[in-house]
Amino acid sequence: MFRKKTLTARKPLKPRKSPLREWLDSIFFAVIAATLIRFLTVEAYAIPTPSMENSLMVGDFLFVSKLHYGIRTPKTPLQVPLTHQKIWGTNIPSYSTAIQLPSFRLPGFTHVKNGDVVVFNYPPAKPNEPAYPTDLKTNFIKRCIGIPGDVLEIRQEQVYINGKVLPVPTRSETSYFIKTTEVLDERFFRKYDIVNDFKSEEGPFINWQPLEAYNDSTKTSFLVGYRVNTTLDVINKFRSFDWIKGIDPIADQAGQPDARIYGSSAYNWNQDNFGPLNVPKKGTTIPINKQTIALYGPLIERYEDNKKVELTPTSIRIDGQSIANYTFKLDYYFMMGDNRHNSEDSRYWGFVPEDHIVGKAVFVWMSLDPVPADIWHKIRWSRVGRLIN
């Protein structure tokens, strides 16, 4: 007997992808993967200004963890992947506000603590800048000084939290007046990472400048004076030079008001003497008066999702009703730069709402000197791989 042969139809072969199609598919999946990593785990940032020197330097590239404080769900989902505010190299917005979603924060490893270096969305609207949604506001990086419920005070530059001294960051910078018999130049200051090369939207950053030349009190020698912004370690090195005749800290005096300072309409505060004030905590109730309006009125008006807020120096009306007290709906944080006299921070524009927190700065993966002495010193190898603390 003979077996019948069964005939099976061959499956048609799929047409082979063209090289262009394979290349486009690879790019598509790479963009999706990078977008998910950026949203779910870590994101890369670069330091553009000296406000965190010497802890973080201009030209540092760092990774910021979204996992530490919990992933923040996007408020503005219609956005070109891997962009922030504009399409690369153009002034074309990279997003649409046609859909705006409520933002939530998933559970994280930890909470923001005093001393953490934090990336956040700059809360107030910047001059000549569009009113971006919360998750697309300009990113800032500062050190968290006060957390919700803290009582914060600055006395002669020293920060106190709940009456206790908050340790000064090891690499933080502040201002000194140096008297010397030598004329110092850019080359000298650059050896100690004291440079004036940086231009920023935050303002001019002058880390050294000659102030005056004069005879000392004995009339025996001619002295040159310099204002220098640097670390305590560098100042201690300067003290060993016999041609430096004096080093004095430069700080504003208590009671000397500064109109640029947050709350200045009701308090005689300045950058070195600030507070005491309470950092708002969700569920905390405050009375409404001139003093509390100066500190917390902008929060009630801008960030608490209240309808029709009418704010005056002495009263607040919400949805047409005058209020005598107010209970906060959000937690808030107080941020400062480690470069204490060269930082635009909470002393000038106020508190950071919890929903503006982006993540925790973890470590520096690359550091490039923006104006190196020569090409061989472009990479600052001593900073590569440095943990941020």
Results as ranks from 00 to 15, higher is better:
P313Y: 00
V364Y: 04
E354W: 00
S343T: 04
K378I: 13
M336S: 00
N342F: 03
E354R: 10
R317S: 15
P313I: 00
E354C: 05
A373M: 06
R347I: 07
R380Y: 01
V362Q: 12
W365S: 10
K360C: 09
V371H: 14
G385F: 02
D369H: 09
Y332C: 03
V358N: 04
G385L: 02
S315K: 12
R340E: 03
W381F: 11
D345N: 04
V352C: 03
G385W: 01
S315E: 13
Y332V: 00
H377G: 12
I316V: 15
Y326I: 03
S315V: 09
P370H: 07
W365P: 04
P370I: 06
K378Y: 09
P370S: 12
F328N: 11
G385M: 05
M336R: 01
N325L: 02
R347T: 13
D319T: 14
V371N: 12
M335I: 07
F363M: 13
P372W: 02
S322P: 01
W381A: 09
F351G: 01
M336Q: 03
W376Y: 10
S322H: 10
I323H: 01
M335A: 12
F334M: 11
S367I: 03
F334W: 11
D374W: 14
G337D: 12
F363C: 03
A324T: 14
D369I: 05
S382G: 06
I323W: 00
K378A: 15
A324L: 08
N325T: 08
D345I: 05
F334S: 01
D374K: 15
W376H: 13
W365E: 03
T312S: 15
P372G: 06
N342V: 09
S382L: 04
R347P: 06
T312E: 11
K360M: 06
L368E: 02
R380K: 13
D355C: 03
D374Y: 13
D319E: 15
F351D: 04
K329P: 02
S382M: 03
I316G: 10
D338N: 09
V358C: 02
T312L: 10
D345M: 03
Q321I: 14
V352N: 14
I357H: 11
S367D: 01
G359I: 00
M336F: 00
K378G: 05
H341K: 14
D319R: 11
D369N: 15
D374G: 15
D331T: 09
I379M: 08
V371C: 06
D319G: 15
D319I: 12
G350A: 07
F328P: 09
P313A: 00
K360P: 06
Y332A: 01
Y332N: 01
M335G: 07
A361I: 11
W376C: 05
I316K: 05
L330D: 15
G320A: 13
L330E: 14
D338F: 05
H356D: 08
N342T: 10
L330K: 15
F328D: 12
F328R: 12
H356C: 04
K378E: 07
G350C: 06
K360N: 10
R380I: 13
M336N: 00
M335W: 08
S346Y: 04
I357C: 09
L330G: 12
K360S: 08
G337T: 10
A324I: 08
F351V: 00
R340Y: 00
Q321L: 14
F334R: 10
R386G: 07
V364T: 13
